[in-house]
């Protein structure tokens, strides 16, 4: 609002402001770029697995999201800093959620959906209810099912495509996965989107985020635990039909989802209990969709579902205020 017109003050005057006058060195920009940097190991693995195609996707998504955000910043009434790292982060996360052989037009559609439908229709940074990259991924899965399910094979570097381990599990059953090595899965040697393949690389980046306290343990731990327990129960009941908990943890987007998507600050709860329930819900819906749904993978749907619950979680499970304890 243009209510003030500050004048040039000739004599230098003393600075007046409300306390506190100190501030930590953290800033939104720093947080965003730090998260981007911690995604580098996972990106490196994807380049190792899928070659130059992966680089192409990463560059295209980043350029598209930043360019679209820059155009949006000229069109909206609120202030948008398109270089604050949030657009870049959305771009990188989008890249991690699509196959390495995605055509450029699909990437463009994804970027448009992520930035406009995912973020700016709600009022820009901090206002969005859903994780922009996931909105784009789900939009693409529904709109372009063929392109979004023909995953390039790892370490082949040609145009041959195949299904993800979860896809095979869904269509052909557990028997078809007999030769799968869990170590390969942990490293990321499997078909899949750019970012979801390597659990180890994702964990490596996330450890830095834990150290910097940009993410907290509640959501990832609850997410992993729920997936493991859910899968474990069914595996115990019928090991012939249902895959082991470890298989469910390492395949698909559980690591990417739990460490980077569900912990997105804007779209996750802020209170302790809210975070626990949020993590539980993500894991629960993921497994529900994986085992009983028609899609092989459910992480993105689960997180989007829980994103919608965040305002409720925040207001129904607030942290306890000081002075509410009865003193014995």
């Amino acid at each position: 609002m243009e209510t003030t017109n500050k004048v040039e003050v000739k004599n230098r005057l003393l600075f007046m402001d409300s306390s506190p006058l100190g501030h930590v060195s953290d800033s939104t920009v720093k947080i965003m770029y730090t998260v981007c940097i911690t995604l580098l190991p996972a990106l490196a693995v994807s380049v190792w697995m899928f070659g130059w195609e992966a680089v192409r996707v990463i560059v295209l998504t980043s350029v598209f999201t930043i360019a679209i955000e820059a155009i949006i910043s000229k069109m909206v009434s609120y202030k948008v800093n398109f270089m604050d790292g949030s657009a870049l982060l959305t771009g990188i996360l989008l890249a991690m959620n699509i196959p390495a052989n995605s055509p450029w037009w699909m990437i463009l559609v994804g970027a448009l959906v992520a930035v406009i439908l995912g973020k700016h229709v709600f009022g820009g940074l901090g206002q969005n209810i859903f994780n922009p990259a996931l909105v784009a991924r789900v939009f693409l899965i529904i709109s372009f099912p063929v392109e979004m399910t023909s995953w390039p094979k790892p370490l082949v570097y040609d145009s041959t495509t195949g299904a993800t381990p979860l896809g095979i599990l869904k269509t052909e059953g557990l028997g078809a996965l007999a030769g799968t090595n869990l170590t390969d899965l942990a490293i990321g040697q499997m078909g899949g989107s750019l970012g979801e393949i390597s659990a180890i690389a994702l964990l490596l980046g996330a450890i830095w985020l834990f150290i910097k306290k940009y993410i907290t343990w509640e959501i990832p731990v609850m997410f992993f635990a729920t997936v493991a327990v859910f899968a474990g129960i069914f595996h115990l009941i019928d090991p012939q039909t249902y895959a082991s908990p470890l298989f469910h943890l390492l395949t698909g987007g559980v690591f990417l989802g739990a460490l980077y998507m569900a912990t997105d600050m804007v779209t996750s709860p802020m209170t302790f209990k809210g975070k626990l329930i949020f993590g539980f819900g993500c894991g629960f819906f993921t497994m529900l969709i994986r085992l009983f749904g028609s899609y092989p993978e459910g992480v993105s749907f689960a997180i989007l579902l829980m994103n919608a619950m965040v305002p409720l979680l925040d207001s129904y499970f607030p942290d306890q205020k000081f002075g509410m304890v009865k003193n014995g």
Binding site: T3, T4, V7, V9, R12, L13, L14, F15, M16, D17, S18
Partner: peptide
């Protein structure tokens, strides 16, 4: 106005008169 009554400080708080009165009586 700024010409008649000189500004006395470099106020950097929230741009609202009541908020300003929490920091100083008058700018």
């Amino acid at each position: 106005t700024h010409d008649n009554c000189k500004s006395q400080m470099d106020y950097a708080g929230i741009e609202d008169c009541w908020a300003a009165t929490l920091v100083t009586d008058s700018t």
